[in-house]
Write a protein that binds this DNA or RNA. Structure first.
Length: 465
RNA sequence: GGCGGCAUAGCCAAGCGGUAAGGCCAAGGUCUGCAAAACCUUUACCACCGGUUCGAGUCCGGUUGCCGCCUCCA
């Protein structure tokens, strides 16, 4: 089964064929680190982490690169406001980024390059553009001569003349053409800067990705991804820069995730309705946020509010309980029984369907629905008089595989401390004595401690509430 | 003006020509000492109007309403 993915470049769902067999070179545009990430930043992190996981599960060796923009106007402004140096702020929020995305179940990239660590590289890249006639210096700035690049607009499917209409006039008097964009910005007084053939300054925004993707992944890469708002101009400009220099196709597959709205409104600073991951995961399990994001197809917009999160929490909880109940039942299971073949078949069928859904443009919404089907079958299976270790193990391992692909974790075995073990024992005795008042008392007491007890015909079962 | 997306049950959300997956919530039932967990049952004229087709949420045309990009933005 081939992996199919929607390619913004062709506007079609295409079979994924990497440049090099079984290897994937993947670049995902990372954040500008001037603040904690908000849930809008979290979406691409989660979505493309899931893409990566699925490709890994499908046997690809994925090299995943995601950058940090650690110098730009927003950082300089933040530095001025806080009275701190740009690198200090950048470091702080890079660390916070790792903390937050780790909590959300995102694997670290193989490389997280930073702009400030690649200034030389970027300057060389710009020099090549100048040499080839695609860029020109103007008053200490360097601009990309957009009209020089034939394919400009191929990603966003705009003709250059249509873009011209929308382009803001007067945005840069130093430009030859309104559509030209900056590669190198001359430093203003007191701004953080680096020396260059054009004087003190710093890189423009788009150039970093071209330079760093090339350095870590090569002239041509398989997948380039980011939020859909990056399609134009950021990714369009990247293509213009990279292909002008190398003469080769930059990225074969362009993936873009949809936006997040808050209570049906666009999340924005001016509306004051943006939600920081750092804050929200103090209130809710970060896994729930991830699950919530994955319950909508990645290219569709997702609306965010607390009620929807609660609904996701309940849904995810059900999946986890089913898994835990399987584990509990394993202890009292025996060897294979007659009916087992059909159960094994069912479990494997679910697993196959899960992968098929993921293969189909990473349809996590449908993949999750398979998880519910699996859980349903697990629960029905647990209704049987006799269960076998083999079937339970198959359920469990498929569960774990699917959770891995989605980047969700299921807690492992936990031990209870002696005091609680003792209380459970006391309650068992009380129940045997038919002293239900005492039994309920203990159950309530444990509930206070966040331990939920469930009586089953295979003995007591507990879980964290 | 250009490019694009969306409109499916109280809520969320799949669906890509063959008479509507899944989840949350709700109601009834079963199981249970009581719970919990779970299982069973119940809940959709797919925005509107035309068209193509034996057959259309699903394709085509139009209407209405929302939204995104075209400017820093995930």
């Amino acid at each position: 089964m081939p992996v199919m993915m929607y390619n913004t470049l062709t506007r079609k769902k295409e079979e994924f064929i990497p440049l090099e067999k079984d290897k994937v070179k993947m670049y995902v545009c990372g954040p500008t680190v001037y603040n904690y990430i908000h849930i809008g930043n979290a979406r691409p992190a989660i979505v493309f982490d899931t893409v990566r996981r699925h490709l890994q599960y499908r046997g690809f060796d994925v090299k995943y690169v995601s950058n940090f923009t650690d110098v730009d106007d927003k950082l300089i402004r933040a530095a001025n406001e806080l009275g701190e140096e740009v690198p200090v702020i950048a470091d702080r929020f890079i660390n916070a980024y790792f903390e937050d995305t780790h909590a959300l179940g995102c694997q670290k990239a193989d490389v997280h390059p930073r702009v400030t660590e690649n200034i030389e590289l970027i300057i060389e890249f710009i020099e090549q553009l100048v040499e080839k006639g695609f860029a020109y210096e103007s008053g200490g700035d360097v601009y990309y001569r957009t009209r020089q690049f034939d394919g400009y607009g191929k990603l966003s499917h705009q003709s250059i003349d249509e873009l011209k209409v929308g382009a803001r006039i007067g945005a840069g008097e130093k430009k030859d053409d309104a559509l030209d964009f900056v590669l190198w910005k001359a430093a203003k007084e007191g701004e953080i800067s680096w020396g260059s053939p054009w004087g003190e300054g710093r890189p423009g925004w788009h150039i970093e990705c071209s330079a760093m993707a090339r350095k870590y992944l090569g002239d041509s890469i398989d997948i380039h991804a980011g939020g859909q708002d990056l399609t134009f101009p950021h990714h369009e400009n990247e293509i213009a820069q990279s292909e002008a220099v190398t003469g080769k196709p930059f990225a074969r597959y362009w993936l873009h995730n949809g936006y997040i709205n808050i209570d049906n409104e666009k999340m924005s600073k001016s509306l004051g309705n943006f939600v920081l991951v750092h804050d929200i995961i103090k209130e809710i399990d970060p896994q729930v946020l991830r699950f919530f994001m994955l319950s909508v197809h990645y290219r569709h917009p997702v609306n965010y509010n607390k009620e929807l999160l609660d609904s996701s929490a309940a849904a995810l909880g059900r999946l986890k309980i089913a898994y835990e109940n399987l584990k509990h039942r394993k202890q009292s299971s025996t060897n294979l029984t007659n009916d087992d073949d059909q159960w094994l078949e069912k479990v494997n069928a679910h697993h196959d369907r899960f992968l098929a859904e993921m293969d189909d443009d990473f349809n996590t919404a449908n993949a999750i629905s398979v998880l519910f089907d699996l859980s349903k079958d697990a629960n029905v299976y647990l209704l049987e008089q006799h269960t076998s270790v083999q079937v339970i193990d198959t359920f469990l391992s498929k569960y774990e595989d699917m959770f891995f692909v989605l980047g969700l974790t299921i807690q492992g075995e936990e031990l209870l401390d002696e005091e609680i073990e003792d209380l459970i024992e006391q309650r068992n005795q009380a129940r045997k004595d038919r002293n239900f008042t005492r039994a309920d008392e203990i159950r309530d007491q444990l509930k206070e401690l966040n331990i939920i007890l469930e009586d089953t015909s295979q003995g007591i079962r507990w879980r964290r509430g």
